[in-house]
Design a protein around this nucleic acid. Sequence first.
DNA 1: ACCTGTGAAGGATTTCACAGCG
DNA 2: CGCTGTGAAATCCTTCACAGGT
Lengths: 291, 291
Amino acid sequence: MSQQRTGHEAGITGRVGAVTSGAVPDFPDLPEATVARLPEYLRALHHLAETGHDTVSSEGLALAAGVNSAKLRKDLSHLGSYGTRGVGYDIEPLVGQIEYILGLNMRRAVALVGVGNLGHALAGYAGFASRGFRIAALFDADLTRVGELINGIPVRHTADIPEVVKSEAISIAVLATPAGAAQAVADQLVAAGVTSILNFAPVVLNLPEQVDVRKVDLAVELQILSFHEHRKSARTEQANSAARSRAAAAGHAAAEQVNPPARAAGQGRVARVLGEAVNGAPVAALGEVAV
Amino acid sequence: MSQQRTGHEAGITGRVGAVTSGAVPDFPDLPEATVARLPEYLRALHHLAETGHDTVSSEGLALAAGVNSAKLRKDLSHLGSYGTRGVGYDIEPLVGQIEYILGLNMRRAVALVGVGNLGHALAGYAGFASRGFRIAALFDADLTRVGELINGIPVRHTADIPEVVKSEAISIAVLATPAGAAQAVADQLVAAGVTSILNFAPVVLNLPEQVDVRKVDLAVELQILSFHEHRKSARTEQANSAARSRAAAAGHAAAEQVNPPARAAGQGRVARVLGEAVNGAPVAALGEVAV
DNA sequence: ACCTGTGAAGGATTTCACAGCG
DNA sequence: CGCTGTGAAATCCTTCACAGGT
């Protein structure tokens, strides 16, 4: 979940696919958590199909998709019955059903805005093309980049967004602009008719609620891992603390020290005692870490 | 969320930060969902600090971070009290506390493996450097790329992973290799001492449970948005169906048609009726969409 | 005998709503 | 009076465990 706001966050039901009450015929009510896992199941199923399988058990598919089998069965049960008791799931019709649900039985046209460092790489990312999407247009605000060909697609100016989005019937856009430009570009995209945005810029977009937004922030992912590293260090620190408690006078800690910052609540702030860096680099002062 | 498996998924408590029972002193028990939001709060706080604020209300910070204020207050309450009733939160000490919890008061060294299309862009991504990380080493299996400088950092061969990971005391790695190579590289990284991996390769990694893994699959994000597009189409389709129900004989649908695939359950498979493409592109046959 | 599909239980997360402090 | 901090309620999600097909 990472992750990830989709504009339905404030929705009433948490189920997706409902109209006002009850599901659209043949479009089942799916828990958001299930939707987020379907692509992973699909990838695993394609892989199984390519390696010659035509059925798979819940256990086998769960393993390939990195979930447990009860969760997988529950998820698939929302799609209807594609399994055979005593045997497993038929891969081919299950692939068809998941692709149908995900709206992948058409090749969706996608616009990408911002062909800087990251955007350039995304424009060339083969995974989009191979998994149901067609990059139909590239945009950048920088006139010196306009006209450049990336992967055979010309970069156009952001001023052309309305025209191109309409002519190509684009409903999904990928935003890879600098943070400062993201909101304005998103507004342009939405005005042009885009209704889903994948946002790589580290800002929260403010958009009409019918627009679905998913945010991918690469630094956030590392920061979450950093938390886990810190926690692991705190554990070993505590585990070792009895053994070290007397002998540790000198300055080479075996693991990160766990020195909480001084609490500035109430009575006067105290200079924060920073933990010793484990990898030799100087500890970053707070002000240096710009966002 | 998303996603994201962190190796603790099968954990007992769902709280992170506990040793076996009870929290490490000054290292609070945090719900995983809270941990995933702290980086977003941190980004918003930095932004507020840069724009001259030194306190902020839960409402204001919630707005900047894209959550509601009740959730924000609950999250921050887990960190201890940094707010003043009637006033709001003091930004500076709160930034310090969040950075401490996330383990960002050191600049963590990160290794990046795979300098292809995406990896190259990640190596140059300024957001890593500006938000607490230092790309300390680049690796690739392709000898023709070894020696190349990217952003001033030389690309080394993957065979050097053990040596460099140790000498640079790297505990976090970013995996941007092709899918086929990812598991083997991940095994090498873990053997060398890496304990957290950010995986961009579309495969599920099988690693010891003490290793934290977060997965970012760019195509998955688009597929989730595609689901929402499909759902939105199904809604308008249904909403319009009464109005159109007689007049719609000819072939230009105003929105995507909602034709569910034929169900192959039980009695004999029927050729699936695909939905009409909305943007003129031919509908992708299932087999074409490789993963 | 095996494996799916699913009620029911158990957790985790979000939201409500208000007590209590500044 | 305003705003945080937080029990309690509500909702969502996962896991258990087994009934029921094949």
